[in-house]
Structure formats: structure tokens, C-alpha cells
Design a protein around this nucleic acid. Structure first.
Length: 493
RNA sequence: GGCGGCAUAGCAAAGUGGUAAUGCAAGGGACUGCAACUCCCUCAUCCCCGGUUCGAAUCCGGGUGCCGCCUCCA
């Protein structure tokens, strides 16, 4: 039994899909005019885990996520860059895909674009007019604007929990009143074209869709007039999702989305990370310094509905954690490959922890709880790995490894292999901080060699001095049977 | 002004009526030439006040603080 926080119901409730075993999920995508920041990364990582969790719990999920490729900001940016809107949006769609691939997010089944769904959009606007929920007025440069009439839709406000009068006081003074609107809360379904802007033909003249209608039209086309899950960031609840809901129901008389999931913001110093505040880091900025799976792990350390504060410290902690688990799994794999164990007999404690983790996922996708279970699984490994020749222990290691890999798959972590990931994390930091042929690298190698010489000569005080110096320079030393190895410090305490 | 969310150890974060998961940090110990890695142990009564209850971090009322939405926003 899955339970989830439904914004529409304002509470956590049991989830029942329209069709048993099958789920339709629509998540609002990005407006493609710039690189995505960590706030975007959170939405898509969160919904990727939700997708994977639903799949793991036995559902077939049809996942749809749109691209908004017609918009004021796109037009403005394209003009500023002196390029076409198409060139701009293609570029940032490619960049988005690249970011998502690096973060390990599965591609949705459909990624509809506004520009390829004009017929559906126009048709839906017409239907809404025909049903008396919208009206056309004269546009600024000829043609007509079409507005949705909130007064003709009594249920307006159901999702965000506001009455129509709520929106007036205080807020309206910030927006110039439009005398053509019957109610100032009415919003555009179709905007007549301004000179020089991209436009499409319609019964109301050349123009383009309002922001909200695209999602109504595209979700309807790809998931039908009623479907299960609709998601996005909390900032979309009002007005975007409220308007989508009103339009869709006005057009189709169907239930539209039954459960609405909204994730909390990524914050910086407790303030929302956003373009307008300028306090954002792009995904690329962050991935230049931290491994994608480290960012992904960090994004799952808080429950998706809660705010998540962004900081280097948090990313550094995530780095240590992901590296620790990867290395332990890699060790386990070594032991297993040497043992020649073919079967994987059951291990009650590991099974219990797996069940606990799956229950946590079913309970509103509680990833922090899953990570806690993961930690407990790792401690289960300790006594077994201390005596890796005992066959009972090998069985435990095999089972725990298997369970952790399963959880890793749901979380999208520890791929392509634990050993591979651990190496990537260390090597990428090494290459970044101590590039080949660099002075820094030469410095490290010189001091390491000096220290080895000192140790060989039993000059331990000199050796310790050198280690301290390396540590101050961001290098950790480790003496092994095969000699001394070093790695960059991965974030200090 | 309207609507909504949150407040748990030094930090982060689960927990929605039965006597506080987990991670990081910190302290102690094992290991080590010394370290690192790893392992073991220790470390909170849950913003304040009042109420309901045999029993509340968890429910209700009242405060205080922080944040968000109401304009583009993930």
C-alpha cells in the first residue's frame, strides 16, 4: 500500500491508481532558455526516484515530462543572443538531457514540446470557449486574446486552497489591472501575436498559447483526460497547477490529475534558490566540483516535501558517504569473486532491512529513511567481512551486497559499479585538484617520495612532518602493504 | 493583507499517541612506527505556555521564530 502527500487533499493518503498496476505520471518540465540549477535537479531527481520506486513496487508507469519551448523569456533571450528561438531551445534541451543523464535520471516515455502540440492546444482552447469557460477579447496588435473565466468555474482554487477573494488584497496592487478581463484573476489561454514574435494560426488570429494550457493539452494527449500523478515544484501550485486543473476540467469534465505531488525548494541560507534572486548554482557548476551521484545522494537526504539547504559542507558529507558505501561494496565484491559462491542463501536481517526500506519508499517516498536503512545494512557487513573465509559470512556478504544493490538501483546510486564509482569520485577529484603535469602534482609526488625515503631510513619525525604538510595541502596519505598511496582530501570536517 | 509550511542533539535529518532512526562532527578505545582507512563505545526528551489522555516530539488552543505562495519561477 502506497501512501503519498496529495496537495489536493492537503494530507497524506492511500494511493489507488485508476487502472490497477498502471500509473500515468506527468511532471512539469523546464522552460528551455538557460542552464538548469540545483533546484531543477531536485525536482527531476526526486521524480526519478518516485518513478523507480513505483516500478520497484510493481507498477507499470507511463512518465511524461514536457519542454516549454515557447515563452516570453525564450523570445527575449533569443533576441538578445541574436539567434532563433529554435536554435536556443534545441541547445538547452540538449544541455538538459546531458545534465539529467549525468544525474542518472531515466528518460520519460514522452517529452512533448509546446511547438509540436499547437493543434491540441488550439482545440482545447476552443472547447473551453464552447463550454462557456473562456472568452476572447481584442488583442493589442490585432487578433484576439483568450482568457479563462474563473467566475465560470466555481471550483477554482481547490488545489491551492484560496478563495478568489483571497487573491485580491495586497497582491493586485502589484499588477496593472486589465480592463478587458472580466475578473482580474482570469488568465490567458491564448495570446495574440506581437510584431516579431513567433506565432501560430488560430481561430483568434496569429498568436501563441498561454503558459498553463500547454500542460493541460499535452497531458491529455499523452495520458488522457484523467490520470494518476501530477508533479512539480511547490512554486507551481499556484497559479500554474491551479490553472491547469481548472482548464482541464472545464475542457474535459474529467477528473484530471488525481494526486498532486509537490517537492520543496532547494535553499541557500534558508532562502529559496531561484533565478530571480540570483542565488543559484547551475547543475554544471556543481558537477564541476562534485560527482553527479554525490549531488544525487545529497538531494535525497531530506524528504522531498521538505526544504533542502544547499552548502559545500552538505556536498562534502555526501561525498564521504557515497565513497564509503561504494568502497565497502567494492570490497564485498572482491571477497565474493574470490569465494566462488554461486548461490545466495537468505539472510534474515538483510531481508528485514530490505523490507523496511521498501516500506519507507511506499510511505510517501521516504528517502532519508532508506538512507538510514542503508547505513544499517553496511554495519551488517562489518562482522562478516572481518572473517571472509567463513562460508556463513560469505553468504551474509552476498545477501547484503545484493540488497544494497537493489536499493541503489531504486535510488539511482552506485553505478556503473561500486568500484567504478569509487574510482571515479577519487580520480575526478585528483584530476581537478592535481592535474597531470601540474606543479601541484609534482609537489605531491616529491613530498610523498621524500616521506617514503624518510620512512625507509626510520626518520619518522621527518616522515610525520611531511604528512602534515601534505595534509595542509589537501592530500591524504595512506601506507599500505604495496606502498604509500595518496588521494585528495574529500572535504574537510 | 490573504493562504500555506516548518521549528527534533554542535550540524543534517527520520519519526504523526506508548517512554527519540540514521549520517557528519566531537570525546574515548582497537588497529598503526605515527597516521589514514576500518571497527567498537559515548553523546537529545523533541521552540514556549496551556489543554486532552493512563500515556504526546507526535492531538487541540494560544504564543514566538523562520520560510514559501499570492508576479516569472522547479
Amino acid at each position: 500500500m502506497i501512501r503519498l502527500t496529495n496537495t489536493l487533499a492537503r494530507q497524506k493518503q492511500p494511493f489507488e491508481p485508476l487502472v490497477p498496476g498502471q500509473i500515468g505520471m506527468y511532471v512539469c518540465g523546464v522552460t528551455v532558455y538557460d542552464y538548469c540549477h540545483v533546484g531543477h535537479a531536485r525536482v527531476y531527481v526526486v521524480f526519478d526516484v518516485i518513478l523507480r520506486a513505483l516500478q520497484r513496487l510493481g507498477y507499470r508507469v507511463r512518465y511524461v515530462r514536457n519542454f516549454t519551448d515557447v515563452d516570453d523569456k525564450i523570445i527575449a533571450r533569443a533576441q538578445k543572443n541574436g539567434e532563433s528561438c529554435e536554435a536556443l531551445t534545441e541547445r538547452f534541451i540538449a544541455a538538459f538531457h546531458e545534465d539529467m543523464d549525468r544525474l542518472g535520471c531515466q528518460r520519460p516515455d514522452e517529452e512533448p514540446r509546446v511547438t509540436t502540440h499547437m493543434a491540441e492546444i488550439v482545440s482545447m482552447v476552443q472547447t473551453i470557449i464552447d463550454r462557456g469557460h473562456a472568452y476572447a477579447v481584442a488583442g493589442e496588435f490585432g487578433g484576439q486574446d483568450v482568457y479563462f473565466s474563473v467566475d465560470a468555474f466555481p471550483a477554482y482554487g481547490a488545489l491551492s486552497g484560496r478563495s478568489q477573494s483571497d487573491n485580491q488584497a495586497g497582491a493586485s496592487e502589484r499588477v496593472a489591472e486589465d480592463p478587458r478581463k472580466r475578473n482580474q484573476a482570469d488568465f490567458a489561454l491564448w495570446k495574440s501575436a506581437k510584431p516579431g514574435e513567433p506565432a501560430w494560426d488560430s481561430p483568434w488570429g496569429a498568436g501563441r498559447p498561454g503558459w498553463h494550457i500547454e500542460c493541460s493539452a499535452m497531458s491529455c494527449k499523452h495520458l488522457g483526460p484523467a490520470f494518476d500523478l501530477h508533479g512539480g515544484g511547490k512554486d507551481l501550485v499556484f497559479p500554474h497547477h491551479e490553472n491547469e486543473l481548472a482548464q482541464s476540467k472545464a475542457a474535459n469534465d474529467a477528473e484530471f490529475a488525481r494526486y498532486w505531488l509537490h517537492n520543496g525548494f532547494v535553499t541557500i541560507d534558508s532562502e529559496k534558490m531561484s533565478k530571480s534572486l540570483g542565488n543559484f548554482f547551475t547543475i554544471r557548476d556543481v558537477l564541476a566540483r562534485f560527482h553527479p551521484q554525490v549531488l544525487r545522494y545529497y538531494l535525497l537526504t531530506a524528504h522531498y516535501t521538505q526544504p533542502l539547504n544547499f552548502s559545500d559542507k552538505a556536498l562534502e558529507e555526501a561525498t564521504r558517504r557515497v565513497l564509503y558505501v561504494s568502497e565497502r561494496l567494492a570490497q564485498a565484491e572482491e571477497i565474493l569473486s574470490r569465494s566462488g559462491l554461486m548461490e545466495c542463501p537468505p539472510c534474515a536481517p538483510a531481508q528485514a532491512l530490505l523490507d523496511e526500506a521498501l516500506d519507507a519508499l511506499a510511505d510517501d517516498f521516504n528517502t532519508p529513511k532508506v538512507l538510514a536503512v542503508l547505513a544499517e545494512l553496511m554495519t551488517l557487513l562489518t562482522p562478516a567481512m572481518a572473517k571472509p573465509k567463513v562460508s556463513e559470512n560469505v553468504a551474509t556478504i552476498a545477501r547484503v551486497h545484493e540488497v544494497v544493490q537493489q536499493l541503489g538501483h531504486v535510488l539511482g546510486l552506485f553505478w556503473p559499479s561500486p568500484a567504478g564509482l569509487a574510482a571515479e569520485i577519487v580520480e575526478s577529484a585528483r584530476t581537478r585538484l592535481f592535474p597531470p603535469e601540474s606543479e601541484q602534482l609534482a609537489w605531491v609526488e616529491r613530498l610523498v617520495a621524500e616521506r617514503t625515503a624518510a620512512r625507509t631510513g626510520k626518520d619518522f619525525s621527518r616522515a610525520d612532518e611531511l604528512r602534515q604538510e601534505l595534509l595542509r595541502g589537501g592530500v591524504e596519505i595512506r601506507d599500505t602493504r604495496d606502498g604509500t598511496v595518496w588521494r585528495p582530501s574529500l572535504g574537510e570536517a
